[in-house]
Design a protein around this nucleic acid. Structure first.
Length: 359
DNA sequence: AATACGGGGAT
DNA sequence: ATCCCAGTATT
């Protein structure tokens, strides 16, 4: 590959990082691979400010890999509640246990073995390899893609496997083998603080004298993406059935959104449905024996996900007889609900509507 | 190669 | 509303 001003890129970036502001983060500069790993998993597709408190929470609850591996899954998911991308949480625990069981509780010290672990992809493997072990692997995240696409004015789309490979190879040409961690830290800091997605601060960018996109005043046109978007609309109907101070929940195990979280008995339909149709459905009818229940209220909420818009309708019902639970449903007390992790749409519903029952 | 997977902040 | 965030797994 032939790129102009490669040498200047690395030199100016490191010079800038040596003197300029660095964002303060609890995981910055640490060498413990466990905590680096934990931070990187939390930060996948997550803003630093959103992830920070989750990191603190996890370090407090599980100071070491062994502590995390020994934790109950329900508890770990409860700590993760609200962060999104819940497979990260499942893989986190899986890999913690895998490391304790098959690796003597020690992180592998090379890129390939790190990459083979569940939940660790190219970015996270490079982050652990460089930050914990000083290995010369360049991280390639959204910041890096943007900085490189602009500096070299590269039209290669960043959101394809081929594009990722292309930018990864470039980043690995630029990284100085003697201080990979500093380089990785610096390029992400630059992307986050100066080479921002919108309205980049090119005027005070340390690289502006060699930045090809800036020279063309086209910095906003990079990076190039193959935009595609289809939003699916879904209609969830929840039965919030109270028998005294107890209600029914179940864990979402299917391969779908919110896998691993809990929810109320739910019927999905092509469109919003009324109580007449839903209460005829065997799934709910069997839970509510004739004549001993009463519908007390209906609440609607929406939640926008990346590729789905969820319309939820909550049916608040009280019964005078104990519902006939079918596995994997469970009957829990309202005051125990806080032990389980729920999707945001349910958390907000409970918070606003069901306060007295939760105490 | 395309798609799914969350939730929140910034504009 | 739209974009994007210290990405990864699956099909």
């Amino acid at each position: 590959m032939d790129f102009t001003h490669q040498k200047e890129f690395t030199r100016l970036l490191l010079d800038w990082h040596r003197k300029e502001n660095r964002r303060e983060m609890p995981w910055k500069g640490i060498r413990d691979p466990y905590r680096i790993w934990l931070a990187e998993i939390i930060l996948q597709q997550t803003r630093v400010e959103q992830g920070r408190e989750y990191y603190e929470r996890f370090v407090e609850a599980y100071p070491t890999l062994a502590d995390l591996a020994a934790a109950r899954e329900e508890e770990v998911f409860r700590l993760w509640q609200g962060l999104g991308y819940y497979n990260r949480c499942r893989n986190l625990l899986h890999t913690a246990r895998e490391l304790m069981k098959s690796h003597g509780g020690v992180f592998p010290k090379n890129y390939e073995e790190l990459l083979s672990l569940k939940g660790i992809g190219p970015y996270t493997a490079a982050a652990i390899a460089s930050f914990a072990f000083d290995l010369p692997h360049a991280v390639v995240d959204g910041n890096v893609l943007r900085v490189l696409a602009r500096y070299f004015a590269l039209h290669t789309p960043i959101d394809t496997p081929a594009g990722k490979k292309y930018f990864t190879r470039l980043a690995n040409e630029l990284i100085p083998p003697e201080e990979p961690a500093i380089f990785n830290q610096a390029i992400m800091d630059l992307g986050a603080t100066i080479c921002k997605p919108q309205a980049p601060n090119c005027g005070q960018c340390p690289l502006n004298s060699f930045c090809k996109a800036f020279h063309q005043r086209k910095q906003e046109q990079f990076p190039v993406k193959l935009t595609r978007k289809t939003i699916r609309e879904r209609y969830f109907h929840y039965l919030v059935c109270w028998f005294g101070d107890k209600t029914i929940i179940r864990k979402r195990e299917e391969k779908d959104i919110w896998c691993g979280l809990y929810e109320f008995p739910m019927i999905e339909r092509e469109r919003l449905a009324g109580k007449e149709l839903l209460l005829e459905d065997p799934a709910w009818k069997n839970l509510l024996p004739d004549g001993c229940w009463e519908l007390k209220g209906i609440t609607e909420r929406k939640q926008q996900l990346t590729h789905q818009l969820i319309h939820a309708r909550f049916f608040y019902v009280e019964t005078t007889r104990e519902p006939r639970i079918l596995s994997p449903q469970i009957l829990v007390q309202g005051k125990q609900l806080h032990q389980y992790a729920f999707p945001g749409i349910i958390v907000r519903y409970l918070h606003c509507v069901q306060q007295p029952l939760l105490l």
